[in-house]
Design a protein around this nucleic acid. Structure first.
Length: 803
DNA sequence: CTAGGGTTAG
């Protein structure tokens, strides 16, 4: 009313009018009207009023803008007014505005500005500004402010000291938090809650959290619902079901269960402890209104407990609810996406993506990162990459996700490129980043990148993490440095089952089966329970070293002595072990007695052995079975065709190749690579694209002369094309592994070992040739192929010519 | 109160 009157009369407002108007604005929250009054005040009244008037007016304006959630306007009150208010209450208001809604740095800036102006902070200033410190994890600033509080003797105030405890705890400085906490003259429930939630937040301190909870009760302070809500996530993470149940009982007695936050916490705890029924019962029984967090937690419980169908149905149920106060949030969507990733169903993922776009959530960083990793986990790495490039805000999680996504889908080189890009963009690699980078180095056998990553991990204190060491063991082993892998293993102060599995298979792929068995014995001596993966590692190690008796023994023992039922993978290892050893009758019996239908991998293992042992009849039979299963793969066509060529049945070999082409299977080209000076050089068969190609070919010709003298003639059977023998030798000479080795001989000093990596299995002719090259050049040559390491030395390969 | 990236085997 007043407002309209004045607008019509074109009269200017008096100071009293302004105050009235501001009250009015505070009620209606009309920013526009408030701004008009603000401008008027600056023009006409603020410069002339006395201090009291000035302070009152500024306080009202600030309050008004903050009530409208307009911190930036509130700030303008300060910036534009001709003098600065001297009352700390007013400054506290603005600091509070920033400390609650950000940008948090401004809260700290304004705090220091009050100091500059000689205004003494009050006991209300400290809790506010400390909140901003914890939001920014600005521990140094927090400590500085702690000193100020001490100087003013405000640090013993219960509000201030609780805020200090909270700040230290949230910044991870639990020792400092506890010191302040212990020095408090008396502690109320809020102080206890700050301390407890600090420990609870950093999930690793579960026992300290519980210890505090007990201490709290000894102090005759009873936990309230906030205490329980703070502790439950830690209980959930620690999978401490018995504690969780006790808390459930406690909550029921105190009727805390009617608090939706507590109920959600309990539900989530049961879900994470795999107690689906209890979780659902809480969800159904809750008498108060459930919010979107409760729904998301329930959805998460379904996903964790592996009830995927139910999870998706539950999500649809939530979408169908005709409740306009309940919508899926980014967290809900991220949880459904986890279900998609587990189901490897990218089509549902795409639907969620669409929904996210429609509801304006795509720019949510957490959701974006989940979406990105879902695409990668579903194997559609192209979509993952596209989404990654289109994200306008990326953090280290985004990079970690795309790096792992690339590695898991076989794009290791791309992963290293992205890692480099990440560093250029000023983001710091974290634990999870390195857990993506190290497997990339392992895949590429890029030892220089690998050891650089190792250095990075040491400098950043990551080598205390078991997971990092496990990845390092694998990386060194796959880069041919079995000794370094062992050193990492030996110097770990704590090992888990993955560490043992990694080192066992490391020896396995290097053809050191006896060492692998010895390590397995050590593991049993240390009273560590082997798991199903351990036996896959062990059996595969036996297979690579032809340890048939030992393999059979442990295969039987795993069920009888360790209570582990063999999975398909274990049967595949056994089929591989027996057939490599040429025990065809035994392997056929073994397959017949399997408790499930043999899959394509079983037959592939057998087919590969048929080629090595030239067992054509069985090979043909096996190949028919593979065809029947409809799982023909390029590798199997190649094996069969190679087998026919080996025995000189060229027509049949050609027939298979035609069939392969008809069915649309392309042989992936053989590719070998070698890392020199941190650069990975890759070669394809007959490749002349490398700048040093002439020198490489000269080197091969030079070697050929000596190899011929030692009786080498190209093993024509390894050439797929039906061409003249002389030409065959020519094709064989420029196989990718030979090119890479020649390049290594040219570029590495004689005392350095040569490591070449190949994407497929090494070809038989190359195997013979490399043995001779190791003899002629007196060099140790290592070739890592798709399944294992071949160490060539003095004309012998440690695989014993079986691979 | 719910929530993103992650080591071993085939």
């Amino acid at each position: 009313m007043l407002w309209a009157m004045h607008l019509k009369s074109h009269k200017s407002f008096s100071l009293a009018d302004c105050k009235h108007l501001l009250e009015d604005c505070l009620q209606s929250k009309s920013v526009f009207q408030g701004k008009t009054v603000h401008q008027h005040l600056i023009k006409n009244h603020i410069p002339h009023g006395d201090d009291d008037h000035f302070n009152q007016t500024i306080e009202k304006l600030t309050l008004f803008y903050l009530a409208c959630n307009k911190v930036e306007y509130a700030r303008r009150v300060f910036d534009r007014s001709p003098r600065k208010p001297k009352k700390v209450v007013i400054w506290n208001l603005l600091i509070k505005g920033y400390a609650w809604n950000g940008p948090f740095g401004e809260a700290i800036n304004f705090y220091y500005k009050t100091l500059e102006l000689g205004i003494q902070p009050s006991k209300f200033t400290f809790p506010i500004v400390l909140k901003a410190c914890s939001a920014l994890q600005a521990i140094e600033t927090g400590k500085d402010i702690h000193v100020h509080a001490k100087r003013l003797r405000l640090d013993s105030d219960v509000y201030v000291s609780t805020a200090l405890v909270d700040m230290y705890a949230k910044c991870g400085c639990l020792d400092d938090a506890e010191t302040v906490f212990n020095e408090m003259p008396h502690r109320d429930v809020v102080a206890w809650n700050s301390m407890i939630s600090g420990f609870s937040l950093h999930g690793v301190y579960y026992h300290d959290t519980i210890r505090l909870l007990v201490r709290m009760q000894n102090d005759f302070i009873s936990p309230n619902s906030s205490t329980i809500a703070a502790v439950l996530p830690a209980v959930a993470q620690a999978n401490a079901l018995s504690h969780g149940k006790a808390m459930h009982g406690f909550c029921a007695r105190r009727a805390y269960i009617d608090d939706i936050i507590v109920a959600t916490g309990l539900l989530d705890m049961y879900g994470k402890c795999q107690y689906m029924d209890y979780a659902r019962r809480i969800f159904d029984k809750v008498s108060i209104v459930k919010n979107e967090v409760t729904w998301s937690a329930m959805l998460g419980a379904y996903v964790i407990c592996d009830f995927m169908r139910e999870a998706l149905e539950f999500f649809l149920e939530m979408m169908r609810l005709k409740d306009f106060t309940l919508f899926p949030t980014p967290v809900t969507l991220a949880t459904v996406l986890r279900a998609c990733a587990k189901l490897t169903d990218s089509s549902i993922g795409r639907c969620i993506h669409c929904y996210a776009i429609k509801s304006g959530f795509v720019s949510d960083l957490m959701l974006g990162n989940t979406l990105l990793s879902t695409y990668a986990k579903c194997g559609v790495v192209i979509d993952a990459k596209q989404f990654f490039y289109e994200m306008d805000l990326k953090d280290s999680v985004s990079y970690s996700a795309i790096i792992s996504g690339c590695v898991q889908n076989g794009h290791a080189k791309e992963a290293l490129r992205l890692f480099h890009k990440m560093q250029l963009s000023g983001l710091y690699p974290e634990l999870a980043t390195m857990l993506g980078v190290l497997p990339a180095c392992a895949h590429l056998a890029a030892i220089q990148h690998g050891s650089c990553s190792h250095c990075y991990a040491i400098v950043h204190g990551l080598t205390t993490e078991i997971t990092i060491c496990n990845a390092l063991i694998d990386m060194y082993a796959k880069c041919g440095r079995i000794d370094t892998a062992r050193r990492v293993f030996d110097t770990m102060h704590k090992r888990d089952i993955v560490s043992w599995n990694a080192i066992i298979i490391a020896y396995g792929i290097h053809g050191l089966g006896m060492e692998a068995l010895l390590l397995f014995d050590n593991m049993l001596v240390e009273c560590l329970e082997p798991d199903d993966v351990t036996f896959i590692c062990l059996l595969s190690a036996c297979s690579h070293s032809g340890l048939v008796t030992e393999g059979k023994h442990w295969f039987n023992a795993m069920r009888q002595d360790f209570g582990i039922t063999p999975r398909m993978e274990h049967y595949i290892c056994m089929a591989d072990l027996l057939s490599r050893a040429g025990k065809f009758e035994e392997v056929c019996n073994f397959i017949e007695k399997m408790p499930f239908e043999p899959d394509v991998h079983i037959w592939s293992a057998l087919l590969a052995a048929c080629r090595v042992h030239r067992n054509v009849e069985l090979g043909e039979e096996v190949s028919k079975k593979i065809q029947k299963l409809g799982h023909g793969s390029t590798g199997n066509f190649v094996l069969l065709s190679n087998m026919y060529s080996t025995v000189g049945r060229w027509d049949d070999a050609a027939q298979i190749r035609i069939l392969q082409r008809e069915q649309g299977f392309k042989k992936s080209p053989g590719c070998s690579w070698i890392e020199i000076g941190g650069v990975v050089h890759a070669f394809f068969g007959g490749d002349r694209s490398h700048p040093h190609s002439p020198q490489i070919n000269n080197k091969i010709d030079e070697l050929l002369v000596e190899m011929r003298r030692l009786g080498y003639h190209g093993e024509a059977s390894y050439v797929l094309q039906d061409v003249e023998d002389e030409e065959k030798e020519h094709i064989l000479l420029y196989h990718s592994e030979k090119l890479a080795i020649a390049f290594g001989l040219l570029n590495l000093s004689p005392n350095k070992p040569i490591l070449v990596t190949k994407n497929l299995r090494v070809c038989g002719d190359c195997h013979t040739a490399i043995k001779l090259i190791s003899l002629i050049t007196k060099r140790n040559i290592t070739v890592r192929d798709a399944s294992r390491f071949h160490h060539f030395k003095d004309g012998i390969c440690n695989c014993g010519d079986f691979w």
